[in-house]
């Protein structure tokens, strides 16, 4: 069984600094990490591997530095890693990112399961996994919060949809985006981390893809353009209320009552 995991490198946090002219977030000096949702996707793959003995291949699209994400994945237990990196891919939006990712996986192997995070913490669109499913023409299960059963031939999962849970079973190939709550990711192990430094990372460039038309990738292949990124306005300061014992409890109860009453009215 073969599992692909999509992992993206994102800034560890944002100071809300933005280049006034370009509208692009200033990342200089900020550390980068693997998108936390994608570490959970990798953990899901590792759990499936424990049951099915699958081989796990990680794909990340980004600059050379994004290699760190693959090394981290190796130190958690991933078997192979591909860095998708080419000048032609720069400036990709969801359309171009998902197209590049689907071209990349297809160029490597026939994967049974593709695992994605629910969303990234920078782009934050939560659309890439659905778009990849569309490009590859395979079933897509979004917001998976539990693996009920997994075998060599099929997988049965629970999805957290708006206000309801849905149980879905599918044969392979398929693509899953997982909720953060599905598993607590393991810590990288020292032994694997030591060996990960020497482990090979393969690079995928435009030349390696089936479709080599650069107009379909990067800025040229993007249907949208971000005009401005800005931190949301701060909400107004609130008063601090200090009350003791019963007074405090009564006060909180009053807030609850008001909140629930107004909700009921809305319904």
């Amino acid at each position: 069984m073969k599992i692909a995991v999509f992992m993206k490198q994102v800034p560890a946090y944002s100071e809300g600094n933005m280049d006034e002219k370009t509208g692009v977030i200033i990342r200089a000096g900020l550390p980068s990490i693997a998108n936390v949702y994608d570490v959970v996707a990798l953990e899901t793959a590792l759990r499936i591997k424990e049951i099915t003995n699958a081989e796990i291949t990680v794909f990340t699209m980004g600059p050379d530095k994004a290699e760190d994400v693959i090394r981290e994945a190796y130190s958690m237990g991933a078997d192979k890693g591909y860095l998708i990196c080419d000048k032609a891919f720069a400036g990709s939006d969801v359309l171009a990112t998902s197209y590049t990712l689907s071209q990349a996986v297809s160029s490597v192997d026939n994967f049974d399961i593709i695992l994605c995070g629910k969303q990234t913490t920078d782009g934050d669109t939560a659309q890439v996994s659905g778009a990849v499913a569309e490009w590859l023409g395979i079933p897509h299960m979004n917001w998976v919060c539990e693996i009920i059963n997994v075998t060599e031939n099929e997988i049965n999962v629970k999805c957290q949809l708006d206000g309801r849970l849905s149980v879905i079973q599918t044969a392979y190939p398929c693509i899953l985006s997982v909720e953060k709550s599905i598993f607590t990711p393991r810590m990288p192990s020292l032994k694997l981390k030591m060996s990960s430094r020497k482990k090979e990372i393969s690079k995928i460039t435009l030349d390696d893809l089936n479709d080599k038309n650069e107009n379909n990738y990067g800025l040229k292949g993007s249907a949208t353009k971000v005009r401005k990124i800005f931190p949301p306005e701060r909400t107004a300061k609130r008063d601090i209320v200090i009350k003791n014992g019963k007074d405090g409890a009564d006060y909180i109860l009053e807030i609850f009552k008001n909140t629930f009453n107004s909700k009921e009215e809305n319904i």
Partner: peptide, 13 residues
């Protein structure tokens, strides 16, 4: 057991 030892790097971790 070195398999159980955690090893992290990078400021955030």
């Amino acid at each position: 057991d070195p398999d159980t030892a955690w090893a992290v790097s990078g400021e955030t971790e």
